[in-house]
Amino acid sequence: MSFGQNVQFLRKMRKGMTQEELAEQLGVSRQTISKWELDNTFPEVDKIIEISKLFSCSIDQLVREDVTMIEEAYSNIRVKTLDSFSFVRYAVVSTDPESDAIIHLRDWAHRNEINNPEFIGWDFPWVSQEQINVHNMHGYEAACILPENFKKSCEELEMRNQKQQQYSIITIKEPFSAPFYLIPNAYKTLMMYLEINDYKQGKNKDIINCFEKIYEKEGITYMDVYISVED
C-alpha cells in the first residue's frame, strides 16, 4: 500500500479525524493533506516525522509498509462499555478445541434450561510445545453468558462474575473464510487503534481481557473481537 493510503487509514483510525483537523495539527492546508493521500505529492522529511509521532508508528511503517489492513471483512471499530454479567467457562486442549468447548457448554446450557445461550471465547495459552508441534493440539476457553437471576442447578461448572468494563471492539464479516489471516489481523488492527487513540489495554486478572463472540445476522456469520481498555 502507498504512503497516502497509510496516512488516510491512520487519520480515520484516530477517532475519525478529518483532513482539516490533520492539516491544522501539521500546519498545512487541507488541500496538501488531500494531495498526500492521493499520492500526488510527498511531504518533507520533517512532516513525515511529525505524522509518525502523531499516529504512534515508525517512519518505516508509514512509508514502506501496509498499515491499512483495509478489508471488506472489517468494520465498525469502536469503544463500548459492557455491563456486568455472570458466566460459566470451560477450557479444552484438543485438535479442535473451540468446537469441543462450545459443544460442552451448549450441552450444559441445555441441561440447565437456558434457551438461546450466548457464548464467547478466547485462546487458552497453557499448551505445551509438544502438544502443539507433535500432536497438533491447541487450547481454547469458552464461556456461556448466564441470564439474569439464573439459578444454577448443575454443580459441574463454577459461576463467575465480571464487573462493568470498557472494551475496544472490531467486527469481522465471515471470519472463517480465512481465519488464520482475518482473526489475527483483527487483533492487530484493534491494538493499533488503541495506540493511535491513546487508549491503554486493560490488564486486570479479575476481568476477561480479550475475547471473541460469533453470531449470525441475515444468514451471514460475524465475529466481534473485544480487547479491554483501561477506564
Rank of each mutant, 00 (worst) to 15 (best):
N6Y: 04
V7E: 01
Q8F: 00
F9T: 13
R11I: 10
K12M: 08
M13V: 05
M13A: 08
E20M: 13
E21D: 08
A23Q: 04
E24W: 07
Q25M: 11
L26D: 05
G27L: 08
R30M: 10
F42P: 00
E44V: 11
V45M: 13
K47H: 06
K47Q: 08
E50N: 11
I51L: 13
L54S: 01
L54M: 08
C57S: 09
I59A: 11
I59Q: 14
L62D: 06
D66S: 10
T68R: 06
E71Q: 10
A73I: 04
S75M: 09
S75R: 09
S75G: 09
R78V: 11
T81K: 15
D83A: 14
D83R: 14
S84L: 11
F85C: 06
F87R: 03
V92N: 02
S94T: 12
D96P: 02
P97M: 05
E98A: 05
S99C: 13
A101P: 00
I103P: 00
H104G: 04
H104T: 12
R106V: 00
D107E: 15
N115F: 05
N115M: 08
N116A: 08
E118C: 08
F119C: 05
I120M: 13
F124C: 06
P125N: 10
P125I: 07
E130S: 14
E130T: 15
Q131G: 02
N133G: 04
N133V: 08
N133M: 06
H135D: 05
H135C: 02
G139T: 00
Y140G: 01
E141V: 12
C144D: 02
P147W: 01
E148G: 13
N149G: 06
E155P: 01
R160H: 05
K173M: 06
F176W: 12
A178N: 15
F180T: 15
F180I: 14
Y181P: 01
Y181M: 13
N185I: 05
Y187F: 12
K188Y: 10
K188A: 15
T189E: 02
L194Q: 04
D198S: 14
Y199L: 13
G202N: 12
G202S: 15
K203G: 08
K205G: 07
K205D: 09
D206G: 12
I207S: 10
N209R: 08
C210N: 14
G219S: 04
T221H: 09
M223F: 04
D224H: 12
S228V: 05
S228P: 03
